[in-house]
Nucleic acid binder design. Structure first.
Lengths: 413, 413
DNA sequence: TATATTTTGAATAAAAATATACAATACTAC
DNA sequence: GTAGTATTGTATATTTTTATTCAAAATATA
């Protein structure tokens, strides 16, 4: 179907969405791969590809791939053709960044966060911060492609809302997407931070693993599920909420949530800190625990290993239920390395059937501060360039190019 | 891309795969829906649709849908355009059937099954039984489209093999697909029976539920996961293996698998029968348990309810991990109705966060003897008519039609 | 019964995509 | 260096698909 053609200069651009999507998502990175993947003829692919290269969205990289004959030129997205605005809402700070299409951080800033301010005030601060970053990014990185938010709470991704009561009072059911769209007329995404960390870890380090389980062991405990290569969210976006799975035992500790014996109350950073405090150490959160572990305090090592066994207990349930081929352990407690990992491994290999564990890998995540930020960028990137939606992007760019003075994405700027 | 055109009579047929797929999978069942879903022009859709109707694969049903103006004719697959051969391998019998594209049973038969015969002998019996059914079906239902097998063991679906040691000695890693392909030159599927029951329950009764968890509570306990509307298998096809999740407790019972305290050893039909036997009742398996339940024996009711609580314990873990919107409980023990269900509900609502349970439904499956058989048919149906693979089917049919005496699917017949 | 409304069919010219062929290119292996 | 090989570009006629228009069909509503 021929689409409304925004640019007179590039008649083929309007139909080149599929090609753009294949390259941007990494599904095909050479002309011959595009032929196979798209099913189009070589002439058509060449034509559309040229339109994309002329438009500056796609470019031939310096790299080539050996083929036996003339090497194939590797195609890639021009990472400076556009940019995203991403934000990670933490406990006390919000981390903002403009990210290119690599994705890599172009520029960033940090603003204080007060949960008690409520969503409207905080989002206004975020949007103001975004405006500064966007003004800079526009000079070098084209136009704004999307906005992506990382929240420290359960999120109903489809509706773009925080769901369920949480530490963020007043955010429950607040229409974040609606609010932000008044300032930025581009696709807007809101997702839970643990899911974003899982996405980042998957795309960056294990893109070819289909079924992966990511555990974030920090002050609290959460997880993200990659099923069939994609994040799995469940009905309300609450999938992976393993922190409050309960185990029976005597002296089950009381959890923050009011129940007894939750995983978090046994193995979360705050729980270990609680136990260390009762032994006379100074510890409030996961970072304090790791400090003591790095000082090789035997009590801390013992408690971390024991926390690993608790996490291993849930992990073994997850392995039985989901049968992943990879478990990645991240979060602050993961800095405890083998002391945490060995406990997890012990329980998983003890409890699960050999069929499920014979090819199972359990590894530590690369400690990276901005993991959720990268995940947010990947999330936006892949959705915006997905098969069904690239056309919107191309239309938007065509309009912007037609009258460059009033970029469609600039509402507040 | 124009494809090799097998039929001179229907030039448009070769390109009509997408249309066929949309109708057959239920994604679009009217001409206007096809326009939207395919993105093709009305002329092209009409042309290809006519080719499909002429070929006998698609037909206009008697039903119409009100539209405000002229009602839209509902399109559907001609359920007699082809058939599947499906088999469910049980404990002592193999249930064979020829199924049309509805899917509905065309004809069926049962043969004894001896696990000790080994795979080659049993598959030969199955194939012989299939030949009889196929000969009959061919006279009224076109040609064979696919073969689908239900196994009472874990199956690596991609490779079509039984994996892991099980009750079926000698089947581990046997190349079932390879063996059957020598007799039937059509797509062949092998899948675990619980997954197939989950597929059947989903397609038949809850096609619009995205995230569903199916529990089979019979002599053993297993489960099937529907994630994002599709069956989720995990890395080795072992996902949903909840029967051997362990819970700590005093006097943890010994399981068939050699571990202590497995779900199955606490709540499986054989475990309840074991406990009933020790109380002086005659019971060996789930059916015996249900007989005693139907006789309203208090001990049986109590044990079933208690089994429900054990299953509820796993179910609550699953709800925390997967956040499904529906749990369906099937299998023989499900005939115990509310006695089983109430225990499950009790634990799930007690243990899970309100966010995950506020829209969660927990229901009984419709008791249906041939559930796995229907699931096997759905599995084959959807794969064969899936977007990427319909073309193969059309090619096969075109060849068959060109020289009808030597149907490509008839090797053994 | 007439009117509005939507589906469906058919015919035309225009546009897009294809197959095919030939040529140029850039590497590897000998 | 030269042959071999696979990638890439370009031009042709051909085929497929589309947009557009006009008309007929089947229902609900007034």
């Amino acid at each position: 179907m021929a689409r409304t053609n925004g640019t007179a200069e590039h008649p083929a651009l309007a139909n080149s969405g599929e090609i753009l999507s294949l390259i941007a998502t990494g599904a095909a990175t050479s002309r011959s791969a595009l032929l196979d993947a798209s099913g189009l003829s070589r002439v058509t692919v060449t034509q559309r590809l040229n339109a994309l290269i002329d438009s500056g969205l796609i470019r031939e990289t310096a790299r080539t791939m050996p083929s036996g004959g003339r090497p194939t030129r590797v195609l890639g997205i021009n990472e400076r053709a556009g940019f995203f605005l991403v934000a990670n809402i933490g406990e006390a700070y919000i981390h903002l960044a403009a990210m290119d299409l690599e994705p890599a951080i172009v520029s960033q800033s940090t603003i204080p966060f007060n949960a008690s301010d409520g969503p409207a005030a905080s989002l206004e601060q975020i949007a103001d911060g975004f405006d500064v970053l966007a003004a800079k990014a526009r000079t070098s990185h084209g136009s704004l492609f999307g906005v992506s938010l990382s929240m420290p709470t359960p999120v109903d991704f489809k509706r773009g809302r925080v769901v369920g009561p949480s530490v963020l009072h007043g955010w429950d059911e607040f229409d974040i997407i609606g609010w932000l769209r008044r300032r930025f007329d581009v696709p807007i995404y809101v997702e839970n931070d643990v899911n974003l960390m899982a996405i980042h870890e998957h795309r960056q380090n294990f893109p070819h693993v289909d079924d992966m389980f990511f555990i974030k062991a920090g002050t609290g405990i959460g997880s993200g599920i990659i099923a069939g290569g994609r994040i799995f969210r469940g009905a309300q976006g609450a999938a992976g909420d393993i922190g409050h799975i309960q185990f029976n035992s005597e002296n089950a500790p009381l959890c923050r949530c009011g129940k007894l014996g939750c995983v978090e109350a046994r193995a979360g950073g705050w729980a270990i800190a609680r136990d260390l405090s009762s032994k006379g150490f100074q510890a409030e959160n996961a970072r304090d625990v790791i400090s003591l572990v790095e000082m090789q305090k035997p009590e801390a090592l013992m408690l971390l290993r024991s926390a690993g066994r608790v996490i291993g207990e849930v992990a073994s349930d997850v392995v039985s239920i989901l049968n992943p081929s990879l478990i990645v352990v991240g979060g602050t407690l993961a800095k405890g390395g083998e002391f945490l990992l060995s406990g997890i491994r012990e329980l998983v290999y003890q409890r699960c059937l050999p069929l499920a564990t014979r090819e199972l890998q359990i590894v530590l995540a690369n400690p990276q501060k901005d993991s959720a930020l990268f995940g947010a960028a990947y999330l936006a990137l892949e959705d915006i360039f997905s098969l069904g939606k690239v056309e919107e992007l191309i239309d938007r760019l065509s309009i912007d190019r037609a009258n460059p003075l009033s970029q469609s994405s600039m509402i507040s700027g």
